[in-house]
Simulated assay, not measured.
Amino acid sequence: MRVFFAARAGLWDAWAPALRAACPEIELTRTGDPASFDALIYAPGFPEDGSELDFTPFIRARLVQSLWAGVERIVTNPTLTQPLCRMVDPGLARGMAEYCTGWAMRAHLGMDAYAQDGTWRHGAVPPLAANRRITILGMGELGRACATALTGLGFDVTGWSQSGRPVAGIPTLPGPALHQALARAEILICLLPDTAQTQDLLNADTLALLPPGATIINAGRGTLIDETALIAALDKGRPAHAVLDVFRHEPLPPDHPFWRHPGVTVTPHIAAETRPTTAAPVAAENLRRAMRGEPLLYLVDRSRGY
């Protein structure tokens, strides 16, 4: 099985050994006749000259396996006719759950309220987790992992997704109930993909539905939030704080107002990373399925964009 590594050269040293260990039968390479490859391993940033990859010459390829969970930077490529699969990495899901749980706990406990200035703030006692309402927008693999971690700590967690597909143990609201999902969200965790339906989902109107003093944690996509509307809403205290890990333009420009706003915490897109050791077995399984003509895992629905 010949596999083309369509990713930046800097990723080769970490990924090539992991992929070969997980799938010893592959011939993994970065060069060769496109018509000779049975599959591609893809990550955004390739080609490195900034052009869009032309998939047309890969006439034998039965699979394009993304190394990223998000596929918005490839799914609209008009030359892509091969099956595209997104990456569902158990290590990435674990990392996302840890990130969101950590920041949710910080908001829940009000840890930033205790300035070390000699003032005894005994009145700032948080409720127990069972009395703290958390809403998670996006109940895919990452949303479910976060919901499981947070319910394990006793939080009152409700999910929301466009489909409203039931999730075991987690009340999940459907698309039309977005207002209800936001109105209860003392802590709002955003893990939605970037699609036409999710862009600017949090805008002036929807941000106003949040309870006063709410916290937003966005580790999904920067396009989910209207940035101008968020700053205006923060100035009004609804929400009171936003922890942002993803942005419309990355790296976030040094002169962006988020850096200076007292209601914003910026983290540099580190909530969750695809880890070769845990992701390579997922790619290996799909490579084998493609060669055997079996159903692929995590096949992208291009009409939905993920």
Rank of each mutant, 00 (worst) to 15 (best):
N77D: 13
A43M: 09
E48M: 05
S51N: 14
T79K: 08
L67H: 01
R94I: 00
E48G: 14
N77V: 07
W68T: 15
Y42A: 09
L28Q: 09
A39H: 02
W68E: 11
A61R: 04
G50E: 12
R62H: 11
D49W: 04
R60T: 10
V75S: 08
N77G: 03
A35G: 03
P90D: 08
A39R: 02
L40M: 09
A35T: 01
D89K: 08
P34Y: 13
L67Q: 09
G32C: 00
D33F: 06
M87F: 05
T56L: 02
Y42I: 11
L80S: 10
R30M: 12
G91D: 11
R60D: 13
S66C: 14
F46T: 02
Q82I: 11
L28C: 09
I41P: 07
L40G: 04
I41R: 07
L63E: 05
R86C: 01
L84D: 03
Q82M: 14
A35R: 00
P90H: 14
W68R: 13
L80G: 07
F46S: 03
V75T: 12
V71E: 09
T31R: 12
V64E: 08
Q82S: 04
E52Y: 06
T29H: 14
Q65F: 08
M87N: 11
G50Y: 06
L53H: 15
F37D: 01
T56P: 07
G32Y: 00
I59V: 15
I26A: 04
T56V: 07
V71L: 05
R30V: 11
D89G: 02
L80Q: 06
P83K: 01
T31K: 09
D54L: 11
Q65E: 14
T56N: 07
S36Q: 00
C85P: 01
P47C: 04
I41T: 09
N77E: 07
Q65L: 10
A69H: 12
F55V: 01
T76I: 06
R30Y: 05
G32W: 00
G45I: 05
F55P: 00
F58N: 02
D49K: 11
P34E: 10
L67E: 04
T79I: 10
I59C: 01
R30T: 15
W68A: 15
R60Q: 15
T81N: 14
R60K: 15
S36H: 00
T79Y: 07
E72D: 15
N77P: 03
W68H: 08
G70E: 07
G50C: 09
F46Y: 15
I59M: 00
L28K: 04
P47I: 12
T81D: 13
L84Y: 04
G70M: 06
N77H: 12
D49I: 06
F58K: 02
Q82N: 07
L28Y: 13
S51H: 11
T76S: 15
L40K: 05
S51Q: 14
D49R: 09
